[in-house]
């Protein structure tokens, strides 16, 4: 069985377990602590996937540097998740606004820097002229700005709360743009194994965006842990698993090619 299939099987089983725990098929007192710890596993796996891919490329490699920025973004998300749980479940304090939000928000620019660096390496000159991408991106930004930033503003909230809320809105716009560009990377690698790895990362971004939008629309219900709304965490968990799988897959592709040449050398 190939490494990426073993990993896929592990992720499917892990996610099935997450579903079991998060959908409440458990006795609450014992499992609630577990579900919080369980939630940290997918982002941790995404960080490990990033480290694995970066080390396969080696220091100084342009793809490695691009993935390093992307992985730092995911690491910031992981630290944000850790701090969020610390504030909410150990200190018993409201985690918004807090240091956790700083890490969440910092993750967006880091991820987009990584994606732009990857695009600069991967794009061929004869590809689409930039305006054909720029127009849909500008439209997406215009629509997203209204939903993500303007609607995030709350006249009754404090300045810090509004700054963070709008920061998330801006971050989600960054995710929309990043999603568009990831599909450009995929098209550039069309027919190659790297395309499928980047597809996984792209799906991870889309799922993150969906979870962020659901969270901003249903924040109140989420905070009250109402059934179905609290399960937005499942979407984020799935996003992290897609990131992780895509990043590990990049590392596995490099390993496979190395093994081939080592075998050929006898």
């Amino acid at each position: 069985m190939k490494k990426h299939n073993v990993l896929l099987l592990f992720f499917v089983l892990l996610y099935a377990f997450c579903l079991y725990v998060y959908l409440g098929l458990y006795s609450l007192s014992y499992w609630s602590l577990l579900s919080n710890q369980l939630y940290l596993i997918p982002p941790l796996l995404a960080v490990l996937g990033g480290l694995y891919a970066v080390t396969r490329y080696g220091k100084g490699n342009p793809h490695g540097r691009a993935l390093l920025y992307f992985s730092l973004g995911i690491s910031a998300l992981f630290v944000g998740e850790l701090l969020w749980l610390y504030y909410e479940h150990i200190l018993g304090a409201d985690p918004f606004p807090s240091l956790a939000d700083v890490f969440y928000i910092v993750s967006y620019p880091l991820m987009i820097i990584g994606i732009f660096k990857e695009i600069r390496i991967s794009n061929r000159k004869e590809q689409l002229p930039s305006w054909k991408v720029a127009i849909p991106v500008a439209l997406l930004i215009a629509v997203s700005s209204f939903y993500f930033i303007y609607q995030a503003y709350d006249y009754e909230a404090s300045l810090i709360e509004n700054t963070f809320s709008m920061g998330y809105g801006l971050g989600d716009i960054i995710l929309v743009v990043a999603g568009v560009y990831i599909f450009r990377i995929m098209r550039d690698y069309s027919g190659g194994r790297m395309a499928s790895a980047w597809l996984m990362i792209g799906i991870g971004l889309i799922l993150t965006l969906i979870a962020d939008v659901l969270f901003s629309f249903f924040y109140q219900q989420y905070e009250e842990s109402l059934y179905a709304y609290a399960q937005i965490d499942l979407v984020w968990s799935l996003a992290y698993l897609f990131f992780s799988y895509g990043l590990f897959k990049i590392g596995f592709i490099i390993d496979d090619i190395r093994q081939k040449v080592i075998k050929s050398c006898g």
Binding site: R124, D188, Y189, M194, I253, I257
Partner: peptide
């Protein structure tokens, strides 16, 4: 690996690896 290979083999090998990893269009480019 390429040290003792002739040019034809090296070019074919490069094409194969690049096609597998980044796709045939980018490999050819």
């Amino acid at each position: 690996f390429y040290k003792d290979k002739n040019n034809g083999i090296i070019i074919t090998s490069l094409r194969e690896i690049l096609s597998e990893v980044v796709g045939p269009a980018k490999a050819e480019y």
